[in-house]
Design a protein around this nucleic acid. Structure first.
Lengths: 213, 213
DNA sequence: ACCTGAACACCGTTCAAGT
DNA sequence: ACCTGAACACCGTTCAAGT
């Protein structure tokens, strides 16, 4: 049952409709309502299912470096969400009701606890890391333009054209855009995510050091 | 016209429907299609309208401290998005097509340029800041639970009950959650956002210092 | 150039009725 | 306990037709 849900989500993104799911299961539309009371609950279960996988994949991360563990735990969630645009969109409008999301929050928090910061700083750090992860993942994993989906344009061509458009802008008015033209053209989403995460962790490391001294 | 759109969005969140908008304007449903070719385009214009305001509000931020300017520019966008759940959701599934979003990106980027970092680091820093801002804003500004909307529960009561639920969990299994019970109960969303932003900026400051030496 | 009413194809949800 | 067909109230979008 939940298997079929996940299959459907992975094939299409927001093509998850009661009618499509019903016909996929070879049943009537109303049958689903015996197992689930609304579409929200269906998404709840689908999201919880993915988070279960993420928790499994990060369970073994317990080295002697809290920052390395935070990094690995964050990257695993990032990749799970970046692969599933519907998951990012879901997290953006729902946090509660999900046992496994709370478990993930606790896990990030436990790594932060090892830094020995006061409760407020601990709370803020754990929240910032999770917020950054799902925020960036939802942003970068967003639905690609139609032309990319239908195959008429490759990802490289799309970036090339964007760069060309930026290049046409007045360099005096758009100095930043012009300065990043080259690096943008062949950038990697995960690299971009990790670079920001490392800035965040560097700030946290500094805060931990200041508190320890 | 666009005025009416904005009015509608601020009253309800996703209650923006062609029929509701049409009756609000005292016209037929199909009339709107003369001004706008789809609902996506309608949202594009609404979002661009808000970003125009944000650009205005941050235009004067040009002190001699790039970090202070970045901070102020980021906080202004955060507050605009946190107040409008529909805007956060919109940014999560759309970045291109918006002249004013590009302008905002450029503005953040120009402040980062002043740090004198190489192009890749400049690109990553500006992207991380914007991603963090809209990610956290969309997350924190998400639709509150129904009980909060209908007035049967206050925000304080809601947090109290969440804390009570967390308190019932096994402290050995949930050490992090137990350690933040007190600070969570009366936390402030903007404080939480700014704390994470400051971690990010601290990491960036460190990177800039390392590069300068 | 601007607006309209009525239809179309969808959607989540409900409900009386079947086994 | 589990499933169904048919309806309900919505939605974005289209289109021939009006001024």
């Amino acid at each position: 049952m939940t298997e079929a849900v996940r299959l459907l989500d992975e094939s299409g993104d927001s093509a998850l409709t009661f009618r499509a799911l019903a016909s996929r299961l070879g049943g009537g539309v109303a049958s689903i309502y015996w197992y689930v009371s609304s579409k929200d609950e269906l998404l709840d279960k689908a999201a919880d299912h993915v988070m279960d996988q993420v928790l499994d994949d990060t369970a073994g991360l317990r080295s002697d470096d809290p920052f390395a563990d935070l990094r690995g735990t964050a990257i695993t969630l990032f990749e799970a969400v970046a692969d599933r645009p519907w998951l990012g969109a879901y997290f953006m409008r729902n946090t509660g009701n999900q046992p496994n999301s709370l478990r993930y929050y606790e896990r990030i928090g436990q790594h932060v606890l090892r830094l020995g910061l006061p409760p407020l700083e601990t709370f803020h750090a754990a929240s910032a890391i999770i917020g950054y992860v799902i925020g960036i993942a939802a942003d970068l994993g967003q639905q690609p333009p139609d032309e990319l989906v239908d195959g008429s344009t490759t990802r490289e061509q799309f970036f090339e054209r964007t760069v060309a458009e930026w290049n046409d802008l007045d360099p005096d008015e758009w100095p930043f855009l012009h300065s990043i033209l080259d690096v943008f053209e062949n950038h990697d989403d995960t690299d971009q995510f990790v670079a920001g995460l490392d800035l965040l962790l560097a700030g946290l490391r500094e805060q931990a050091a200041a508190h320890g001294s």
